[in-house]
Design a protein around this nucleic acid. Structure first.
Lengths: 241, 241
DNA sequence: ACCTGAACACCGTTCAAGT
DNA sequence: ACCTGAACACCGTTCAAGT
C-alpha cells in the first residue's frame, strides 16, 4: 500500500486545475478514514449518494473539513476506486499452459470486485487508473498475455480493451444495482422487453421480431459476460500472428 | 420519424416514477424544439452544461415550462440520444460476401456519429435504447450478422456486445472532448504517461516498464478502436460453430 | 496546523398563480 | 391548455474566522 516509490501520476490539465493541498498531521480525519467512509456510502446508498456533505456527516464534521485532506471530490473518487481495484487477488506468476483460462478468471474476479460496490463502475470508467493496485493489475495482465506469446503491441492494446469490457459491463449492471432492482423485477423487465421486440412492426424490423427471444435471453447477465470474454479471448488468440 | 406504430417502450421501475405528462398543443415549445436546443448545448458546451435551466434559457423561457413537454431530464436525454443514433446511415441490405467489412464500417460510422456530439456517449451508455433509430440499428446489425451465418444466440449477444464496445470507446474519448483537450495537449499527456510507466519500480512492475512505449502508443485513438473491432469480429467469426 | 459555519453559485423538480 | 416565478431541497467548493 506504500506509494512513496511511485513517480508522480500524469494528469490531464482540466479547465479548473485542482487546488494544491497542505499535508495533514496525524489526526482523526485522514485520507484513509475519508476513503473508508466514502466507500461505505457507495456500498449502502450508491455513487450519487456519495456527496462531500454525506461523507463529512458520516465522519461527524462538515464538508469543508474534507478539503484539508483531499483536493476535490475527483481526488477522493480516485482513492476509492484504487481501493476497489485492490480487492482483486492476483496470482504471483503466469502459467503458459493456461493463459486463456487464467486471463478469463482474472477478469471475472475484477467484475466481481466491482459488482460488490454497487455502481462504483461509473467512477472507474471515467479515469485512467494510475494507482498502486491498478499498476499491479496491469502487471498481471501483461504477464499473462506474454505467457500466451502475443506480440507486445497486441498485449498493450489488450490491456486497454479487456478492462474496458469488464468495466463497461459492470457499469451497466451497476445501474440496476443503484436503482433497487431485485432479480424478480429484472425478470419482469426482461419479459416486457421481449414482448416489446416481438410486437414491433415486422415489415420494418423483421429480424428484431425474429430474434426477440434471443435478444432478451441470459437473465443474470453471467452468460452475457461469459460470451464477451469468449469472443475477446478467441479474438486475441487470433492476433498471435 | 413517426413512432405512432411502435408499442409502448418497456421501462424499469425507478425509485421515483416519472410523472405523467399532458399532451401539448401546437405551440412554439415542442419536444422537437426542446431536443434541438438540448443537443446544441451538448455540442457546444458538453453534456454537463445541458441543464434544464440552460435548455429553457436557450428557448427564451424558464425551466419549469419544459416539464409540460418532457417528463423529466431523463426523458429529454432519451430524445436527444435517439436523434444522435439516427445520424448513422444504414445500408438497405446485407452482403454475405463482405459481412465482416460491412459490420466494421457500420460500427465506425456509429463511433463517428457519437464523436460528433462531444460527451453524449455518457448519456447513451446509461440506457437501453428503444427508440425508432435504435431499432433500425439493431435491425441492421442482426441482418449483417445473419449474412455471416452466425447462430441466432450468438447474434443476439453480439447485438449487445458490439454497441457496448463502440459506446465505451466513445465515452472515454468524449471525456477528453468535454474538457478542452487539444491534440497537442493529448500528445503531451501521452508522453507523460509513457514516462510514468517507464519510471515505475522495475522490480515490482517489470512488464509495465518493458511495455511503457507500447501502452501509450496509438495517438489519435483510431488504431485502438480498430484493434478492438478486429479482435471482436475475429472472435465472433470464431463463434460460428 | 487544522477545523468550521456560512455563503456562493449552482442543480432538478414542484406548485400555485397567471393567461 | 399551456406557461411562469418563486420556492424546495439539494450540490461542490471557497473563505474568513476560529482553535
Amino acid at each position: 500500500m506504500s506509494s512513496g516509490d511511485l513517480p508522480p501520476v500524469p494528469r490531464l490539465p482540466t479547465r479548473t486545475p485542482p487546488r494544491k493541498q497542505r499535508a495533514p498531521r496525524e489526526r482523526s480525519l485522514t485520507r484513509e478514514a475519508i476513503a473508508t467512509a466514502a466507500l461505505e456510502i457507495v456500498d449502502s446508498e450508491g455513487l450519487d449518494a456519495m456527496t462531500m456533505r454525506r461523507v463529512a456527516e458520516k465522519l461527524g464534521t462538515g464538508a469543508a473539513s474534507l478539503y484539508a485532506h483531499v483536493a476535490s471530490k475527483e481526488d477522493l473518487l480516485e482513492l476509492v476506486v484504487d481501493r476497489v481495484i485492490g480487492e482483486v487477488e492476483i496470482p504471483p506468476e503466469a502459467d503458459p499452459e493456461h493463459w486463456q483460462r487464467d486471463l478469463k478468471q482474472g477478469l471475472r474476479d475484477m467484475r466481481a470486485a466491482i459488482a460488490g460496490h454497487r455502481d462504483i463502475a461509473r467512477a472507474i470508467f471515467a479515469r485512467i487508473p494510475f494507482g498502486e493496485n491498478a499498476l499491479g493489475g496491469a502487471e498481471w495482465m501483461i504477464r499473462t498475455l506474454r505467457a500466451g506469446g502475443l506480440p507486445d503491441q497486441v498485449i498493450a492494446y489488450a490491456c486497454d480493451l479487456l478492462p474496458l469490457y469488464v468495466t463497461a459491463v459492470a457499469y451497466e449492471e451497476g445501474l440496476y444495482a443503484s436503482e433497487n432492482v431485485t432479480p424478480e423485477v429484472m425478470l419482469e423487465f426482461n419479459v416486457r422487453m421481449r414482448d416489446f421486440y416481438a410486437s414491433v412492426p415486422p415489415e420494418r424490423f423483421p429480424n428484431v421480431v425474429a430474434l426477440a427471444a434471443n435478444l432478451t435471453a441470459g437473465g443474470t447477465g453471467d452468460e452475457r459476460f461469459e460470451f464477451g470474454l469468449e469472443v475477446l479471448v478467441r479474438g486475441l488468440a487470433a492476433m498471435a500472428d
